[in-house]
Amino acid sequence: MSTFPDYYALLGVSKTATTDEIRQAYKKESLRTHPDRLTKATVEERKVATEKFQAVADAYYVLSDPSRRSEYDILYRTKAGNKSSDPGSSQNFFSQFANMFAGASTGAGTGAGPHGAMPGHQPDANGVFADVFEELLRPEVERVVPWWSYLGAACGAGLGFIIANIPGVMVGAYAGNRLGAIRDAKGKSVAVVFLSLGGSQKAAILRALALKVLGSAGM
């Protein structure tokens, strides 16, 4: 018989935890287990981290929404002695019971929606992470990827110099930078930009987030 996932244990919270406590616990656990922090990990180590990261996202998705949590708690009380914090149990849980969430609410910030999960499906771990961390991710992402802003400034400066020498450089660089900034921002969510970054850039951003949330990048 497959074990039942103990989402409270996975997040390290009590069964009476508030929604805010669950959110804070998710932030800490997701940063600790995010596979992109493991830049020098072996394939096996990265696989283990990815499974734990997904299970932590599952736990937040279920416990952060009152309707999903209520449905989960009904099952939780019937699984005495058969609960586990093993990440594999979460995947089994969604394959068996995800449809019971089909009628649950999908309010903002609960991990549902475009980056979360469709009712009856396991949530996308990266999407849940981006939703919860959007406020903290945005300045970190914008700090490292204004490619079009830089390119626009360089091209504008060159064109400005051709037209009006040094004054033209200043005007052209500013105009090009603003046009590039529009290109950087247009149609790109924080999640999309973050996921498109290279491994070293993502690791640097995650370390910065860890400093803010955990107090130590090594945690």
Rank of each mutant, 00 (worst) to 15 (best):
S30L: 02
T33Y: 07
P87L: 07
S30V: 14
Y76I: 01
E142F: 04
A112H: 08
N92K: 13
I74T: 12
A104Y: 01
H115N: 13
V128M: 08
V145P: 00
P139Y: 07
P146G: 06
F133D: 05
G152R: 03
W148Q: 12
E140T: 01
S64D: 05
L136K: 13
G158E: 09
N126P: 00
S149D: 00
S89N: 04
N99P: 00
S105F: 01
S85W: 02
H115S: 06
A157C: 07
L159Q: 02
A112D: 12
R68P: 11
G127F: 12
L151N: 05
R143E: 12
A80Q: 13
Q96R: 15
F133S: 05
A102R: 13
D58S: 03
W148M: 14
D36K: 11
S85H: 05
G160N: 07
Y60G: 02
E71D: 12
F94H: 11
E29P: 04
T42M: 01
K40Q: 09
R37S: 04
K28P: 02
R32V: 13
Q91P: 00
F97M: 12
G120A: 11
E142H: 12
R69C: 09
T50P: 00
S89H: 03
R138Y: 05
L75V: 01
F93C: 06
K83D: 03
A153S: 15
E29R: 15
K40P: 00
G107E: 14
G107S: 13
L75R: 14
V132Y: 02
S90Q: 06
S64T: 05
A49R: 11
A130K: 03
Y150F: 12
T33V: 02
R32I: 15
S84F: 07
E29F: 03
K83W: 03
G107K: 08
A154E: 07
D131M: 10
V144S: 03
D124W: 15
K83E: 10
S30I: 14
Y60K: 02
G113F: 08
T110C: 07
N82E: 15
R69T: 06
K27T: 03
T50M: 10
S85Q: 11
S149I: 00
T50R: 15
G127R: 12
A59S: 15
G81E: 09
G81R: 12
A130W: 04
E140G: 01
K83T: 15
S95A: 14
T78M: 11
Q91R: 13
G158L: 14
T50C: 00
G156C: 10
E71M: 12
G158F: 13
L31C: 05
T78K: 13
M100D: 09
K47T: 11
T106E: 14
E44V: 09
